[in-house]
Amino acid sequence: MITKEMIDRINFLYHKSKKDGLTEDEKLEQASLRKEYVKEIRNRVKEQLDNIEYVDEHECSDECCHHHNS
């Protein structure tokens, strides 16, 4: 789960890397946090895509509001 603390830490490490540089431990932490963040985003996108329902336009009823080319 992505938490505010996680995002804050990712941002802190990013800004520190640009200003002062990171220790080896901080670089490993940054890589781990980024990996976890990207994994969570991918899971969320996958969930959304899995919930998309395809509707065939040819299955519309006579009361359909769409205009189809016949």
Rank of each mutant, 00 (worst) to 15 (best):
I2D: 04
V38Y: 06
V45P: 01
K18F: 06
R34I: 08
D62V: 01
T23A: 06
H67I: 11
R42Q: 14
I41S: 02
D56H: 10
A31C: 02
G21E: 00
D25H: 08
I41D: 00
H15V: 11
I41G: 02
R44M: 14
K4A: 03
L49T: 03
K19F: 04
E40P: 08
N51R: 15
D8T: 12
L28V: 11
D56S: 14
D56L: 04
E57L: 04
A31F: 06
R44K: 15
K35F: 10
K18D: 03
E59F: 12
L33G: 02
Q30V: 00
D20E: 15
E29R: 05
I2S: 01
K35I: 01
K18V: 07
E29C: 02
H66N: 06
S32L: 09
H66P: 00
E57C: 05
M1Y: 05
V38Q: 08
R42Y: 07
Y54D: 09
V38L: 12
N43D: 13
I41Y: 12
S32C: 02
S32Q: 14
I41T: 12
E53C: 03
N51S: 12
V45H: 04
N43P: 01
S61M: 03
H67C: 04
Q48W: 02
H67T: 08
Y54G: 01
Q48R: 14
R34C: 06
E24M: 11
N69Q: 14
N11T: 11
S61I: 00
L22Y: 02
Y37K: 01
A31P: 00
K27I: 03
K35M: 04
A31N: 12
N43A: 12
H67W: 03
L13G: 10
E63G: 05
I41R: 04
E26N: 07
V55A: 05
E24L: 14
E29D: 06
D50F: 02
L49N: 12
